[in-house]
Design a protein around this nucleic acid. Sequence first.
DNA 1: TTGTAGGCGTTATCAA
DNA 2: TTGATAACGCCTACAA
Lengths: 347, 347
Amino acid sequence: MATISDVAAKAGVSTATVSRALNGKSTVDPQLVARVRTAVDELGYQPNGLARNLRRQETAVLALIISDVENPFFTAIARGVEDVAQTAGYSVVLCNSDEKPDKERRYLDVALQERVAGVVLCPAGTATGVELLRQRGTPVVAVDRPLPGEPGDQVLVNTRLAAREATTHLLDAGYRRVGCVTGPSGIRTADERLAGYRDALGAAGMAPTSAPFRHAEYHRADGARAAAVELLDLAEPPDALLIANSAMAIGVLEALAGRGLRPGRDIGVVAFDDPPWATLIDPPLSVVAQPTYQIGSAAAELLLARIGDPDRPPVTRTLAAQLIPRGSSRGGRHREVTGGSRSPGSR
Amino acid sequence: MATISDVAAKAGVSTATVSRALNGKSTVDPQLVARVRTAVDELGYQPNGLARNLRRQETAVLALIISDVENPFFTAIARGVEDVAQTAGYSVVLCNSDEKPDKERRYLDVALQERVAGVVLCPAGTATGVELLRQRGTPVVAVDRPLPGEPGDQVLVNTRLAAREATTHLLDAGYRRVGCVTGPSGIRTADERLAGYRDALGAAGMAPTSAPFRHAEYHRADGARAAAVELLDLAEPPDALLIANSAMAIGVLEALAGRGLRPGRDIGVVAFDDPPWATLIDPPLSVVAQPTYQIGSAAAELLLARIGDPDRPPVTRTLAAQLIPRGSSRGGRHREVTGGSRSPGSR
DNA sequence: TTGTAGGCGTTATCAA
DNA sequence: TTGATAACGCCTACAA
């Protein structure tokens, strides 16, 4: 593979001149520049990024570590990160931690070893190893979930409030026993959504402790389906469900269909995320839409700012999720007829 | 940032010994290894991957360039690539070409400059720049779409045959005027699916040239929706539709709903890809499922084999897609009763 | 078994 | 303006 010396030899100049010519440095004789260029073309020379980075002690690469490539929530974030990074001249490499701390750790090591310019991280578990990044001074922005320890730059969603609003919405629609299927215990978004759900119950004068809920895996419909079945089999089954993401919503909706329960009539349903198929099903799914793309772009902006000025104070950006009521959370027919009596129903 | 010399100094040995100890090389005094390890821990030393790669002239990084991060088809492939790569000790960096040749080109340049060990590429457009990789001897495996020029390693899906089977299935179900919404002209899968669709019509004795079809963007529901509307507005509208992917299926199904047309009764529908919501809608969507994960794992295997032996003959792996008939392609009720009169409409 | 020293391909410093 | 030269941090003959 051709090196800079080959080019220099062919152009009859020194390697220094080639380097300067190629990097558009200061004043180089235009004639020499031309000679260098033709030599480059003839040799098919491609600068060795490895050597360059080693010398410069920096790379124009950002690492984005997410916990599930197959989750549209994260891929939308990826797009936001990428667009901002691209325009700033950075490349983005996407790493999939699969919600596994050891895989995350491994990618963090790689990021460190490859000396990436910065990392956007959606922490899985306790994010051991992020300490290393901090020690090294490698800029990190946490996304969707905060990093343990003292806060650095982060972009979060006010998901607890959103869960509370969604639950209140179900209550207002006349549902009296709202249940919740949330993500794995220990994952911040899952815990927050459960907390927000309980907030709403408490505010409505209900005992949050007796609230019917289940944990399930975020990325598989199976677990959520089983969780829904369990809830439906309760002595006092819920008449409405808050679901913590769209992958789980699929499992839950399957379970409901299996029981012949129709959302919006027999049972109220609101799910986090606004997947493209939400309006396709009958009735359309009420959702809590998250500003995914903005999460990504905001994270990238924060990261670039941090790279530019390592000493700026850390900033937390909290974005709002938006409740979009659709058919699946309309009050049930039965409820409309009998008129919700004592419960905190509306209408 | 601590370097290998720092460690050597602290452990009271030479850099060579540190290097050997850390890389588990041959015979190093266990006592020295221990000293080195503690020094490493105390300094928080992380080897500089840049320098290492420069020296070794190789990286344990694979680049995966896909045309749409938000398309589940590609993210499933990514997972397949990643799993195989991981177990072989390689990291995977995912790059999103966004179906734009210049972005693809840019990422190929980066891959080249960073001297990745190999590239899995889903070519956008004519994949200019892949020539560079080939000249350089950087292993490439094409996925989903073949590379122009003489064939290298590639993993394809027999999508033309699958389209033909799906169309025949619709014909067999009693639909008489099958239409097609395919992807952008020039993209291999889109063209192949259209061709397969025409194959089926031809085999059934119909004139493929008069077949009602439209092209639309792969990743947006909008275009497909508009395309469907156009087809439905035809003087002789189709009574069944073959749709080239699931994102477009959403647009088409919306258009059908807008017209009050019920899949499986008023109009037959089969779409490529088997999204999780396919069984959630009513009636369930008939699909052509593609072996996405296997595509990815096969591609990674081919790439690793090529890295191991640059001189092996190129291999093409063609995988089969599978038709999964569900409710949306049942023959219409009217059709079953009257038994196929003349007009292509139902009811 | 350990240490010395050279080089991977660039860029930056310093003279000329 | 250009060129020789010294790093960047690591690995690996080769020598001890």
